[in-house]
Amino acid sequence: MGAEPLLPTANESQPAAPLILGLQPAALIDHVARVDPSLLDRIPGDRGGSMPVGMEELENILREVKSYILSSPDVLTSFKTIAGGSVANTIRGLSAGFGVSCGIIGAYGDDQQGKLFVCNMSSNGVNLSRLRMIKGPTAQCVCLVDAMGNRTMRPSLSSAVKVQANELTRDDFKGAKWLVMRYSIFNMEVIEAAVKMAKQEKVFVSLDLASFEMVRDFRSPLLQLLESGDIDLCFANEDEAKELIGGEKDADPEVALEFLAKHCQWAVVTLGANGCIAKHGKEIVRVPAIGESKATDATGAGDLFASGFLYGLVKGLSLEKCCQLGSCSGGSVIRSLGGEVTPENWQWMHKHLQIKGLPVQEIPQ
C-alpha cells in the first residue's frame, strides 16, 4: 500500500501553507521514564547513548519499565508517552510555544502509536496535511532518564514506516519559508530530494547535525551536503562541532563555527551550560545560557533551541536576540521529562523573555 496524505477535515480544507515545515521521514513515539540505576542495570547494552533494538526487545523493555515503576512507590519515577523525534520536537515547540504556523512532512503507521503521534502533533497546532499514513508499524523509542538528567535510549526504527524520496512533490514545499531537517545517513535519499525541491520553491533549509556519532561515522556525505551551498542554517552542539573538524577533544568550537559559516548563511554551535556562539555574515555573537536550572531531562534541549532561534529569524530579529530566544527555549524543556514543554515551563520561558525584552506570544494552556 502506498503512502496516503493525512487529509484535512472539512473545516480546514485547503489550509494556508505553513511558514515552517519539518521533514521527519518516520513518525516516532517516545516512551520516557525517570528511573534509578537499578533498572538501567537490567536493560541490555551500556548506559547512556542510543542502541537500536528490535520491536520485541523494545516491548520487553517497556514491560520491565512499567513493572519497575509500579513496584517502586518510594522512588521518584514518572512515565509519559509522546510524539518524539528531533524535528517533531522543534516544530511542536514553534507551533505551541511561539505561535508559528508549522507543518510536518513524513509518514506514520496504521497502528495505535501512529494515532498517538497524530493526536499529539495536531493538538499542538501542527498542520498534518503533508503527513502520510502507510500500512505498517510506527517507530518507537524508550528513553530512560537518570537522576542527573542523562538519557539511555533504545529506539526501534528498522521496521517502521517512513516516507520515501519518490513520494515527495514540490507541492509539499510550496508556499513555505523554511524547511527544518536532521542529518541522518539512513535518510539521505529523502533529504537530498527534499533539499532539491525546497530550493526550487525558494525555501530556506535548516540542518541539525543530529549526533557526534553520526558526524564521525558519516562525515564525508555530510561535508558534501554542506559544501553544496544548499544549507542556509546549521545547528551543531559542541561534540558534533568537534567531530566535524576532526574529532579532537580540545578543538575550539569557534573553529567549527567558522567552518560552518563558510557554507551556511547562519551557523550556530550550542555549548550546553555555557550558552552558544553563532555567526551570520561577518557578525559573531556569544550568548550565555539563560536561567539557572538543574536539568531534569536533557531530551529536546537542542531541538527547542532551534525553535527559539528560528522564531527569531522569521521575526527578523538580530542574531543576538535569535540566540537569546534559542537559549531560553532550550532551557525551558530541560525542566521536565520528555521533549515537550509543559505549560508551566512555557510560563517560565515567557517570563525570562519578557525580562530580556524579547517578543512572546500568548502562553499556551
Results as ranks from 00 to 15, higher is better:
L209T: 15
E344Y: 01
V215H: 07
T296M: 12
P343Q: 08
V163E: 03
V203G: 00
L304R: 04
G246W: 12
S329D: 05
G85N: 05
Q24M: 12
G109W: 06
R219V: 06
I43Q: 05
K162D: 05
G339R: 04
S95E: 03
E292T: 14
A241I: 08
A96P: 00
A147C: 10
S38V: 12
D74M: 05
V341C: 11
G85M: 07
T90K: 02
Y68R: 02
F98T: 02
D297K: 07
P221K: 10
D232K: 07
G48A: 08
G109A: 10
G2Y: 09
L21A: 06
G326A: 10
A3K: 06
S336F: 06
E59Q: 14
G302T: 04
R132C: 13
K315P: 00
M133S: 11
E238A: 11
E57A: 13
D297S: 08
V205N: 00
C322V: 05
M55G: 03
M153A: 12
K294M: 10
P137E: 03
Q354F: 02
T296G: 00
A236T: 09
R216N: 12
G357I: 08
I185C: 07
E56W: 00
Y311L: 01
L271I: 08
P15M: 04
H31C: 08
S211R: 04
L76M: 11
V360P: 02
S123F: 00
K202F: 12
G114L: 03
G109S: 11
L131S: 03
S211D: 14
G275Y: 01
R216I: 01
A301F: 03
Q14E: 14
A26I: 01
V205F: 00
Q140T: 14
N120D: 15
M1W: 09
K294S: 12
G85Q: 04
D232H: 15
